[in-house]
Design a protein around this nucleic acid. Structure first.
Length: 479
RNA sequence: UCCUCCUUAGCUCAGUCGGUUAGAGCAUCUGACUGUUAAUCAGAGGGUCGUUGGUUCAAGUCCAACAGGGGGAGCCA
């Protein structure tokens, strides 16, 4: 029989029955007549308290029951005499699968900094905070599939190893089986990739979008959800070298449809977390309040976590064009007082400080910005009649910045080719992409959601390295 | 990659103007006590002060380089 989890046991507490719980010891409190052991098995943030009468269990066994030990405890489930919990386990038998030397086990019952826990990423899932984060992360991943499935989208597996850098955006990780010390050379003395595993240069994907568009041109509505790799030397709390991205792509969707979907999608996901992870979110909310107690009022979160999440679910996002945003910024107080580090002007990309002003000061709500200047956006975005802008959209979230970037795609072959040439992309590398515009091209749109940025928002965490189990960042790929 | 700050006990941090034996809280261990909740009380153990080099009679303290980390910026999701 598979062991029951603590989540199940607490859900339908069968008082008076003998049960066995298997998990890891969080704390043990000794005394002469009675010992309390708190067990957690990861199924929920809640522990079960086992009550041991010292004469019932061999002392050598009890001695091995220390913080971090893996154990199975059998006993009768009874109503608790104490006030911290409804039920508890009157232990009659204990198996210690593995003890954990208290002198060496790093996770002792005390507060640990997130920085320290990052250094012991192999153990941090055993903490309340990371248990909560990882359960929420799972719930959001599940909700993503559910959302798209309910709406007739198909999950398309785009390649992780790609032969194109078509987006031209950013550094990529090379994939090769050639000997780095002694690679084969061609006539010109350069590395001969014809000898490489795939017979050409290959990299890890930076986006599944281009392949996603191929899927949308056949299946109608698709989404991808997979790992994405950027070899940028980005050292921020919002960037990872390996992260997970969701990229829906829809035939016959125009930019407005795209925005509607993005907004509905985000609200659905946040609501799902609120409905299904209430214990974990409540814990993280309390944790955040404790942590921010020592900060000045201005630096504290304006709303408690759950209120912030409810706000996003219940209020529609502010939509405006890039041009309108520039006007607001030009007339803003910080701009007139010269408080912006970067000047505001039409044609340049918005800086973090500008985005933050719009989201956190001007609107105090999620914002969707559209119709950016074509020069600062990607080649595949649909060009507008005005000849100056493209049908792009960025969804900006408070505290996170850009959480979604997307656009309507340019479906006109001639216009697309013109941009491809202007940007300087070799036709040969994306001939297959260009053919979609030759054979039955239709209007279509899509966007990319950074999964970890979503988890960041829902958990209220501040550093993206704390919402993925094993973060990969420059100079760091441990575990 | 740039700016900035940090690195002292297992963890979080003090450490004065450079001065003799480097401190605290938590954790750990021992004991006491108690249906306890990160229990409480008493005691104990625990340090190559990130690394290397320099200045000085004397360096945890000053200087330089390097390494690791935090915060901010750029790039973006």
């Amino acid at each position: 029989m598979t062991p029951k989890t603590i989540a199940t046991i607490l859900k339908d507490a069968q008082i008076g029955k003998e049960i066995t719980i298997k998990g890891w010891v969080r704390t043990k409190r000794d005394s002469k007549n009675v010992i309390f052991i708190n067990i957690n098995d990861g199924s929920t943030i809640k522990n079960i308290q086992a009550v041991v009468v010292p004469t019932d269990i061999e002392e050598s066994i009890i001695h091995q029951v220390v913080t971090g030990a893996g154990v199975a405890i059998t006993g009768i489930l009874t109503p608790s005499q104490g006030s911290g919990q409804d039920v508890e386990l009157l232990a009659s038998h204990i198996i210690v699968y593995g003890t954990a030397d208290p002198e060496k086990y790093p996770l002792q019952p005390k507060k640990h900094s997130l920085e320290f826990l990052r250094e012991i990423a192999h153990l941090r899932p055993r903490t309340n905070t990371f248990g909560a984060i990882l359960r929420i992360r799972h719930a959001l991943a599940y909700a993503i599939h559910q959302f798209f499935n309910e709406r007739g989208f198909f999950y398309l597996h785009t390649p992780i190893i790609t032969g194109s850098d078509a987006e031209g955006a950013g550094e990529m990780f090379r994939v090769t089986t050639l000997d780095p010390k002694n690679p084969p050379l061609n006539d010109k003395g350069a590395v001969d990739y014809k000898e490489d595993f795939f017979g050409r240069e290959t990299n890890l994907t930076v986006s599944g979008q281009l392949e996603g568009e191929l899927g949308a041109m056949a299946l109608g509505k698709i989404y991808t959800f997979g790992p994405t790799f950027r070899a940028e030397n980005s050292n921020t709390a919002r960037h990872l070298a390996e992260f997970w991205m969701i990229e829906p792509e829809m035939a016959f969707y125009e930019l407005e449809d795209n925005m509607d979907l993005a907004e509905e999608f985000l609200q659905y996901l946040v609501k799902y977390a609120l409905d299904n992870c209430s214990d974990d979110i409540a814990f993280l909310e309390k944790r955040l309040l404790d942590e921010e107690k020592s900060l000045k009022k201005e630096e504290q979160s304006p709303l408690p976590l759950r209120e912030k999440l409810h706000f996003v679910v219940n209020n529609s996002f502010k939509r405006l064009t890039y041009t309108e945003a520039i006007k607001i910024l030009e007339n803003s107080k910080p701009n007139k007082k010269g408080q912006f580090k970067y000047p505001v002007s039409w044609g340049t990309d918005l800086q973090s400080e500008h985005e933050r002003y719009l989201v956190e000061k001007e609107f105090n709500a999620p914002v969707i910005l559209t119709d950016y200047p074509r020069e600062i956006k990607s080649f595949y975005m649909k060009q507008s009649e005005d000849g100056k802008t493209v049908r792009a959209m960025d969804v900006l979230f408070p505290g996170i910045g850009e959480i979604i970037g997307g656009s309507q795609r340019e479906e006109d072959y001639d216009k697309l080719i013109k941009r491809v040439d202007e940007v300087g992309i070799d036709h040969e590398t994306i001939w297959w992409y260009l053919e979609t515009r030759k054979f039955g091209t239709v209007p279509h749109s899509g966007f990319g959601l950074g999964f970890e940025r979503l988890v960041l928002f829902v958990t209220g965490m501040k550093n993206i390295r704390d919402v993925i189990p094993f973060p990969r960042t420059p100079k760091s790929a441990n575990f």
